Amino acid sequence: MIIRCLNCGTKNRMPENRLNAHPLCGRCGAPLVVESGLHTPVEVTDSTFLGEVLTSNRSVLVDCWAPWCGPCRSLASHLEELAAKYGGGIKIAKLNVDENPLTAQQYNVRNIPTMLLFSKGRLVNTLVGLLSKEEIERHLLSVMETS
Protein backbone atom coordinates (compact mmCIF):
# COMPACT_ATOMS: atom_id res chain seq x y z
CA MET A 1 0.00 0.00 0.00
CA ILE A 2 1.25 3.50 -0.84
CA ILE A 3 0.58 6.41 1.55
CA ARG A 4 1.52 9.94 0.52
CA CYS A 5 2.96 12.11 3.30
CA LEU A 6 0.84 15.22 3.82
CA ASN A 7 3.91 17.11 5.08
CA CYS A 8 6.50 16.54 2.31
CA GLY A 9 4.56 14.68 -0.40
CA THR A 10 6.77 11.58 -0.37
CA LYS A 11 5.11 8.31 -1.36
CA ASN A 12 5.69 5.73 1.40
CA ARG A 13 5.29 1.99 0.83
CA MET A 14 3.55 0.47 3.84
CA PRO A 15 2.58 -3.18 4.47
CA GLU A 16 -1.13 -3.49 5.22
CA ASN A 17 -0.46 -5.21 8.55
CA ARG A 18 1.43 -2.11 9.83
CA LEU A 19 -1.25 0.50 9.10
CA ASN A 20 -2.45 0.54 12.72
CA ALA A 21 1.13 0.98 14.05
CA HIS A 22 1.17 4.80 13.64
CA PRO A 23 3.51 4.83 10.61
CA LEU A 24 5.96 7.68 10.02
CA CYS A 25 7.19 9.16 6.74
CA GLY A 26 10.51 7.65 5.70
CA ARG A 27 11.78 11.02 4.48
CA CYS A 28 10.67 13.67 6.98
CA GLY A 29 9.49 11.54 9.94
CA ALA A 30 6.01 13.11 10.03
CA PRO A 31 3.10 10.85 11.04
CA LEU A 32 1.36 9.36 8.01
CA VAL A 33 -2.39 9.87 7.86
CA VAL A 34 -4.22 6.68 7.02
CA GLU A 35 -7.64 7.38 5.55
CA SER A 36 -10.52 6.22 7.75
CA GLY A 37 -12.31 4.71 4.75
CA LEU A 38 -9.38 2.39 4.10
CA HIS A 39 -11.05 -0.79 5.25
CA THR A 40 -13.36 -1.79 2.43
CA PRO A 41 -13.99 -5.17 0.86
CA VAL A 42 -11.25 -6.21 -1.55
CA GLU A 43 -11.95 -7.93 -4.89
CA VAL A 44 -10.26 -11.32 -5.25
CA THR A 45 -9.90 -13.49 -8.32
CA ASP A 46 -8.79 -17.04 -9.05
CA SER A 47 -5.25 -15.72 -9.49
CA THR A 48 -5.15 -13.50 -6.36
CA PHE A 49 -7.01 -15.82 -3.98
CA LEU A 50 -3.86 -17.46 -2.62
CA GLY A 51 -2.16 -14.16 -1.75
CA GLU A 52 -5.23 -12.29 -0.52
CA VAL A 53 -6.93 -15.09 1.43
CA LEU A 54 -4.87 -18.20 2.08
CA THR A 55 -1.66 -16.42 3.12
CA SER A 56 -3.30 -13.47 4.88
CA ASN A 57 -2.12 -12.77 8.42
CA ARG A 58 -5.73 -11.93 9.36
CA SER A 59 -8.94 -13.92 9.31
CA VAL A 60 -10.78 -13.48 6.01
CA LEU A 61 -14.46 -13.57 5.06
CA VAL A 62 -14.91 -14.23 1.33
CA ASP A 63 -18.26 -13.17 -0.12
CA CYS A 64 -19.04 -15.36 -3.15
CA TRP A 65 -21.45 -13.36 -5.28
CA ALA A 66 -22.62 -12.52 -8.82
CA PRO A 67 -23.84 -9.20 -10.27
CA TRP A 68 -27.24 -10.63 -11.25
CA CYS A 69 -27.99 -11.93 -7.72
CA GLY A 70 -30.43 -9.70 -5.81
CA PRO A 71 -29.63 -11.11 -2.34
CA CYS A 72 -25.91 -10.65 -3.08
CA ARG A 73 -26.49 -6.95 -3.79
CA SER A 74 -28.46 -6.63 -0.54
CA LEU A 75 -25.62 -8.26 1.38
CA ALA A 76 -23.00 -5.87 -0.05
CA SER A 77 -23.93 -2.93 2.21
CA HIS A 78 -23.74 -5.12 5.33
CA LEU A 79 -20.27 -6.31 4.35
CA GLU A 80 -19.06 -2.77 3.65
CA GLU A 81 -20.19 -1.70 7.14
CA LEU A 82 -18.51 -4.72 8.74
CA ALA A 83 -15.31 -4.11 6.77
CA ALA A 84 -15.19 -0.55 8.10
CA LYS A 85 -15.91 -1.70 11.66
CA TYR A 86 -13.55 -4.70 11.82
CA GLY A 87 -11.06 -3.84 9.06
CA GLY A 88 -8.06 -4.02 11.39
CA GLY A 89 -8.99 -7.48 12.60
CA ILE A 90 -10.56 -9.24 9.64
CA LYS A 91 -10.33 -8.86 5.89
CA ILE A 92 -13.51 -8.96 3.83
CA ALA A 93 -13.06 -10.10 0.25
CA LYS A 94 -15.46 -10.41 -2.67
CA LEU A 95 -15.24 -13.19 -5.26
CA ASN A 96 -17.40 -12.89 -8.39
CA VAL A 97 -18.25 -16.56 -9.04
CA ASP A 98 -19.16 -15.94 -12.70
CA GLU A 99 -15.69 -14.56 -13.44
CA ASN A 100 -13.78 -16.89 -11.08
CA PRO A 101 -15.24 -20.39 -11.42
CA LEU A 102 -12.09 -22.26 -10.33
CA THR A 103 -12.12 -20.94 -6.76
CA ALA A 104 -15.90 -21.26 -6.50
CA GLN A 105 -15.66 -24.89 -7.63
CA GLN A 106 -12.73 -25.62 -5.30
CA TYR A 107 -14.79 -24.53 -2.29
CA ASN A 108 -17.98 -26.19 -3.53
CA VAL A 109 -19.95 -22.94 -3.86
CA ARG A 110 -23.28 -24.06 -5.29
CA ASN A 111 -25.59 -21.28 -4.07
CA ILE A 112 -25.06 -17.56 -3.71
CA PRO A 113 -24.61 -15.62 -1.64
CA THR A 114 -22.13 -17.89 0.12
CA MET A 115 -19.60 -16.56 2.62
CA LEU A 116 -16.44 -18.51 3.36
CA LEU A 117 -14.64 -17.80 6.65
CA PHE A 118 -10.90 -18.48 6.75
CA SER A 119 -8.55 -18.42 9.71
CA LYS A 120 -4.80 -18.91 9.21
CA GLY A 121 -5.45 -19.99 5.62
CA ARG A 122 -7.94 -22.71 6.57
CA LEU A 123 -11.66 -22.73 5.81
CA VAL A 124 -13.39 -22.75 9.21
CA ASN A 125 -17.02 -21.96 8.34
CA THR A 126 -19.37 -21.60 5.38
CA LEU A 127 -22.45 -19.38 5.53
CA VAL A 128 -25.08 -19.75 2.81
CA GLY A 129 -27.91 -17.35 2.04
CA LEU A 130 -28.86 -13.80 2.91
CA LEU A 131 -28.05 -13.38 6.60
CA SER A 132 -28.59 -10.32 8.78
CA LYS A 133 -25.64 -8.08 9.56
CA GLU A 134 -25.85 -9.16 13.21
CA GLU A 135 -25.68 -12.86 12.29
CA ILE A 136 -22.64 -12.30 10.06
CA GLU A 137 -21.01 -10.21 12.79
CA ARG A 138 -21.54 -13.02 15.31
CA HIS A 139 -19.70 -15.45 13.02
CA LEU A 140 -16.92 -12.90 12.38
CA LEU A 141 -16.37 -12.41 16.09
CA SER A 142 -16.17 -16.15 16.72
CA VAL A 143 -13.48 -16.49 14.04
CA MET A 144 -11.56 -13.47 15.36
CA GLU A 145 -11.58 -14.92 18.89
CA THR A 146 -10.15 -18.26 17.77
CA SER A 147 -7.41 -16.83 15.53
Rank of each mutant, 00 (worst) to 15 (best):
133 K>W: 01
40 T>Y: 03
107 Y>D: 13
84 A>E: 11
94 K>D: 05
116 L>H: 10
7 N>L: 06
109 V>S: 03
54 L>G: 09
101 P>W: 12
139 H>F: 09
78 H>C: 11
51 G>Y: 02
119 S>E: 07
140 L>F: 15
70 G>P: 08
45 T>K: 04
69 C>P: 13
21 A>W: 07
12 N>T: 01
73 R>D: 04
92 I>V: 14
57 N>C: 04
133 K>Q: 15
72 C>K: 05
97 V>H: 08
75 L>Y: 06
25 C>H: 01
18 R>M: 07
59 S>L: 04
11 K>T: 07
68 W>R: 15
98 D>Q: 14
80 E>M: 06
105 Q>H: 13
1 M>A: 11
67 P>N: 14
126 T>G: 08
119 S>V: 03
95 L>W: 12
82 L>E: 03
118 F>N: 00
93 A>R: 04
71 P>D: 04
137 E>W: 00
123 L>I: 03
108 N>G: 09
147 S>C: 08
17 N>Y: 09
126 T>V: 10
130 L>N: 12
36 S>Y: 08
141 L>R: 15
55 T>D: 02
104 A>D: 06
127 L>N: 05
78 H>W: 07
66 A>D: 05
125 N>D: 15
76 A>Y: 06
63 D>F: 03
57 N>I: 06
65 W>M: 07
91 K>V: 01
20 N>F: 07
24 L>F: 15
71 P>W: 09
44 V>R: 13
77 S>N: 10
103 T>N: 11
10 T>V: 13
20 N>Q: 12
105 Q>G: 12
65 W>S: 01
75 L>C: 04
20 N>G: 07
42 V>H: 00
117 L>P: 05
51 G>L: 07
9 G>A: 05
70 G>M: 11
67 P>Q: 15
102 L>Y: 11
18 R>T: 12
4 R>S: 13
68 W>D: 10
131 L>F: 08
60 V>F: 11
100 N>G: 10
113 P>C: 02
85 K>Q: 13
98 D>T: 14
59 S>M: 11
43 E>F: 09
79 L>K: 04
136 I>Q: 07
76 A>M: 10
34 V>I: 14
95 L>E: 08
17 N>D: 11
96 N>P: 07
141 L>S: 08
131 L>A: 09
46 D>I: 03
27 R>W: 15
94 K>G: 06
116 L>Q: 06
101 P>E: 15
38 L>V: 11
3 I>Q: 03
143 V>C: 00
109 V>T: 05
62 V>W: 12
111 N>H: 13
33 V>P: 02
12 N>Q: 05
116 L>F: 07
44 V>M: 06
120 K>R: 11
32 L>C: 01
146 T>H: 12
136 I>H: 03
14 M>P: 06
80 E>P: 00
146 T>K: 15
15 P>S: 06
76 A>Q: 13
16 E>Q: 10
53 V>R: 04
118 F>R: 01
25 C>Q: 03
123 L>C: 03
4 R>P: 06
52 E>G: 01
37 G>L: 07
85 K>W: 02
140 L>E: 05
45 T>P: 00
147 S>T: 10
129 G>M: 00
17 N>E: 12
42 V>C: 01
17 N>I: 09
19 L>M: 08
6 L>R: 09
18 R>C: 02
134 E>G: 10
42 V>P: 00
